[in-house]
Design a protein around this nucleic acid. Sequence first.
DNA 1: TGAATATATGAACATATATTCATATGTTCA
DNA 2: TGAACATATGAATATATGTTCATATATTCA
Lengths: 125, 125
Amino acid sequence: MQIKPEAVERCGDTVIHEETVNRVRELMPPDETLYDLAELFKVFGDSTRVRILWALDESEMCVCDIAALLGMTQSAVSHQLRHLKQAKLVTNRREGKTVFYSLADEHVRQVFDQALEHILEDRYE
Amino acid sequence: MQIKPEAVERCGDTVIHEETVNRVRELMPPDETLYDLAELFKVFGDSTRVRILWALDESEMCVCDIAALLGMTQSAVSHQLRHLKQAKLVTNRREGKTVFYSLADEHVRQVFDQALEHILEDRYE
DNA sequence: TGAATATATGAACATATATTCATATGTTCA
DNA sequence: TGAACATATGAATATATGTTCATATATTCA
């Protein structure tokens, strides 16, 4: 399919394909939604948090265990758990001195699985 | 279900729940995979790139059009398109002076949809 | 070939953020 | 109550990154 010239204006002035731009603009979700989406992905965009989420998908764990599993400081893990909780991706319950964290959302696994497909597809081509 | 004490060691020394940690450790994917996963999400974790991807999911577009749609500099858009291409999320074809970009992966939409469910779930509770 | 135009890119700057360190908070138990 | 321990958190630091600006590259057309 060829792109038909919708307008003859230069790029610098208005737009080259004005109709396309206008059509897509109407189809776009509100900026706030796309901003929230990016914010959520930003939370996923750190290997420490990804590892924590993956671990919690296997089992509820306390901070100390996560730190041991990942070979990280208790403080670093605690800071990241804070982010994950703010994003409502994990919840926690206290049992004495210990605080157990677990996944708060069943979508996480599905998002990860879809993203993994993209990665694996790239690897073996 | 109660957590049974698997070990009596202190957190500082070894691990509190050693069996859990060992079990989860074996279930975890290789670090490289989780690192790649985080890298991919890092690409999604910017509202400019999310908006570009969403736009391209609606229609193939040239750099100039994307810049006009988003109200951004051509340079800024071009830089971000570079990231998206490196992540193999978009491809491009040249037609004269114009370069058209389009989605390279059908998983993007699915990942976005899953993530949106999480967001919308949070909003109306 | 040279002017005009669309896109790409390197350097610089400002901002965001992950980890560390020190310390505070909360809980148990003697 | 006080000691021991698990977790949380504020400040500081180092690093990563998005945008801007200037400029390079690529293509068309007279």
